[in-house]
Design a binder for these strands. Structure first.
Lengths: 278, 278
DNA sequence: TTTCTATTTCTCACATTTCGGGAATTACGC
DNA sequence: GCGTAATTCCCGAAATGTGAGAAATAGAAA
């Protein structure tokens, strides 16, 4: 998955020093949370002084922290920024009471997933059924093309964005079974959109997700609410029922969301209208 | 608090393009979560093309996201990195059950605060008393010199780190009432250390925090547990009782923490031994 | 405290990259 | 599909990043 070894020396195309510094952070994963300068030198094929400069900049910014034994780990700024995002996100004010209300009826789990360009992220979860593995906590990313929360967002994107996606991600779309060409894709999306909600089981095969879209403005998706149950607990009637439940909840959430932001788009207003894909 | 306007042109001392790019992120606060390129140009006094380059790099890395109306907001990578940190943090595996156990006895609130160099961060909270304003959720930073969770960590830092701090942060230490010079400071710290826990009320005057240190290795503080109650609910006897409770809980947490990591410091092991201050 | 080693920063010469104005292009929303 | 932004591209000038090695710290033990 990773490249075995980066290019000999010099820079890859489009690579700038900023790119490289930010790229360092990608190395810090749950599997390899600690990196020393020596490891970074070996990995990135850069001079030791340069690596020290980079690491220092990241430390000064709080994105890395030195630990005992000449190692570095991800720093506190990420935790702080996550909080900052949480504080500015109106969805996190609006949705929890709705989830609490649905909890007993759903009797499984619930996810709130936000749309972030090509990615969809779990942003909030609520669980009752202990059999449901919720490896789906805040911060878990999904492809825009996989899973019912993602797809129901995808289906509700504006047409020109769907067109862009069809052009730039034909491969992904085909692999996800969403159509071999623009017409098929568009029709598939329209079907989902018209149905109002989407039932799917393509991420965890043992679970069924029933998702409906949340809009921050008419025609502009911001997120989706996904009701989750184990497969054996969902009859076709249940699916329909939960679908309607989700759609209704999302309608309420959407209208609160739109009331939350004053009509004029002055900055300083909540920052959720994410609707650009590249 | 902010500088009214940055230096005319050119670069401030020690400022590098990397510093500046990372600095852009600092502008995205809960108060001003949306920035346009124009606003950034005005604020940073850089060419429009340059700002676009910077913003693009940050977007490509997922640290910013474009929103409708030519604005940018903090991106999904922060949420993902926070998750990554949570997954790698053994404290978040060990502490929740302990907090649950203490919940009814404490009958107030609990904070787990982690040591990050000059900063201390709330990393986990647990609340029962609805009268306690818990603006203290995950991600909230504290000064190393204020609040009982911070101070109890401070007091348990190795001597040479205390010395460094006394040299470089004399001002802060004096202002926090921790001593006018090295001797006073050292003695104050020793007193706290010997007592084992710390009772204080210097952040929220209506609350009392009772904190004890958590060690990832003998003599190496990693974090602190803080038991919180409203001031009127804490008699001197209560304080002593809660102090002992905290110390005992932290002893258990510390020993689990040390068992969690195998003796050898191979990398790939959990990444918590944060013990360097600058 | 003092000492000793490993880690980190500093110095400096060289050249590669960045910067910014303006033109060209692309994207969004009707 | 079109028109108005928003964004990227292009280019010369010049400043900044780079890396080897020296110097300075910081960390851990006596």
């Amino acid at each position: 998955m990773d490249n075995i070894s980066p290019p000999e020396h010099g820079r890859a195309a489009g690579e700038t020093s900023i790119t490289r510094v930010l790229g360092i952070l990608d190395l810090f994963t749950p599997e390899t949370p600690v990196w020393t300068v020596d490891l970074l030198v070996d990995r990135l094929l850069l001079g030791r002084a340069t690596i020290y400069r980079y690491v220092r900049a990241l430390c000064d910014a709080g994105f890395l922290v030195p630990v005992a034994g000449a190692g570095y780990v991800l720093g506190p700024r990420f935790i702080e920024f996550d909080r900052s995002i949480r504080l500015a996100d109106p969805l996190l004010h609006i949705v929890p009471p709705v989830m609490a209300e649905l909890r007993d009826v759903v009797n499984g789990g619930q996810l709130l997933c936000a749309f972030y360009g090509l990615r969809v992220l779990t942003v909030l979860q609520d669980k009752t059924d202990p059999n449901i593995t919720m490896s789906m906590e805040r911060g878990r990313p999904f492809s825009l093309f996989r899973g019912s929360p993602s797809r129901v967002i995808l289906a509700n994107l504006p047409t020109y964005q769907l067109r862009n996606l069809a052009l730039n991600h034909q491969q992904d779309i085909a692999e996800a079974g969403l159509g071999q060409n623009w017409t098929e894709f568009r029709d598939a999306m329209r079907t989902i959109r018209r149905n109002g909600y989407l039932v799917a089981s393509d991420i965890d095969k043992a679970l069924v997700g029933i998702s409906a879209p949340i809009f921050h403005a008419p025609g502009a998706v911001a997120a989706s609410l996904c009701l989750v149950r184990t497969k054996q607990n969902v009859s076709p009637e249940d699916a329909t029922f939960l679908g309607r439940l989700a759609v209704d909840a999302c309608r309420r959430i959407s209208s609160e969301l739109q009331a939350f932001r004053p009509g004029d788009a002055d900055f300083g207003a909540p920052a959720f209208p994410i609707s650009r894909v590249r």
